[in-house]
Amino acid sequence: MASSGAVPFWRAAGMTYITYSNICANLVRNCLKEPHKAEALSREKVHFSLSKWVDGKPEKPTVRSDTSEH
């Protein structure tokens, strides 16, 4: 297995398996040819807002969104 050597490295970088597999998936998507590539990339949009709660009160929500980046 080619990836087995890489495991300790992305773990040490503070990534979870989910982040790692997302990066890999994005790489694969970027390998597509043009009409399909734009379609696949536009399909996978991230948008949600997250707020942590401390002592029964919500903190200011942080918005995770990549619509502005593209």
């Binding site: 991230v46 948008h47 949600f48 997250l50 707020s51 942590k52």
Partner: peptide, 9 residues
């Protein structure tokens, strides 16, 4: 934690 605005896209 609470998460909202999931279904915008």
């Amino acid at each position: 934690l609470s998460l909202t605005e999931l279904q915008k896209n």
